[in-house]
Design a protein around this nucleic acid. Structure first.
Lengths: 160, 160
DNA sequence: ACCGTTTCCTTGACTGATTCAAAACAAGCC
DNA sequence: GGCTTGTTTTGAATCAGTCAAGGAAACGGT
């Protein structure tokens, strides 16, 4: 393990301890995997974790992701039609840009801060805690494709 | 069938025809069910359709919902942790308020029109087609509960 | 450093929404 | 009315995610 990796592992351990979670190598590996693979789905996280710990069970990864989500160290997002995806960036009110064709997700900062449209005009008696914004469109790679190529790409990506 | 129901059925038939879809009683019933049960999940739609057509297969409902979504007659939304839900209101840029406790969904109009925050500051080369806003919070019923009651309600609703 | 308690991980089976495939059927056009 | 094509039924399969029980590891105290 390189010096840098070592440091990252220690950061993750500290984060777990600060959240009153037991520090296990499985959880550290899951947190690192989410950190290095932003917006990864569960299977990607499992594969990433298994590069360090080849024998982890998928259940351990599911449990870790839930525990980390529970204490707010990671955030789970599920754009329509996608599997659950996890990210380490939390608490900074950023939003997501999702490609309809290849399912690529990128972060967008909310530069306007407390934007006016994020307070619903009629809250129907709701206590609103959070506004989640998802922008749908085509990423630059998919935008240059012909419609046929887009369709193929979409089919192969949704099959994967 | 009452005169009013008759009229609704004809409206739905016309909508199907206008979208170049074959008019089958299953599709008409599915479209009506989505119209009368806003934000219903698939199982609710199936139950509603079976009040008129007791023998519909669930597959027919899934196929119809997909076909209707494809041509834009209905819209599919999937807030994190929810099953797929469908609604008839399309193309009017409205958004949703979701209760974290009981999963109630209500519509909110975007009164500000083309709101400034709905254009991402850095679009990363994306062609952005649509912004989807989901407000998370507690509905008025759940807000008056104690935390314990909320937890129970959430457990029973997520089990349902 | 060791022990005990508590929490976590592994294993393996299971659930439930959604999808697949093939044959029976119905809508729309002639 | 009959033909063609697209839709529905039927029944099974898939697959992300969950449940449960026993073994194992982490933390706090000795």
């Amino acid at each position: 393990m390189s010096e840098e990796e070592q440091k990252r592992a220690e950061d993750c351990s500290a984060a777990l301890r600060n959240s009153s979670l037991r520090v296990t190598k499985q959880r550290v590996a899951v947190l690192q995997a989410v950190d290095t693979h932003p917006h990864a789905d569960t299977e990607t996280v499992i594969r990433a974790v298994r590069e360090d710990l080849p024998e982890v069970s998928h259940q351990a990864v599911y449990d870790s992701l839930h525990a980390l989500t529970e204490v707010g160290l990671v955030r789970c997002i599920q754009p329509s039609g996608s599997l659950a995806r996890y990210e380490r960036r939390v608490g900074d009110n950023h939003h997501h840009l999702v490609c309809r064709s290849c399912n690529l997700i990128v972060d967008v900062d909310c530069t306007i801060g407390r934007a006016p449209c994020l307070t619903p005009s009629h809250d129907h008696g709701f206590i609103v805690e959070q506004a989640e914004v998802t922008f749908w469109g085509l990423c630059s790679d998919c935008a240059v494709d012909t419609p046929e190529q887009e369709r193929e790409r979409s089919e192969s990506s949704s099959a994967a």
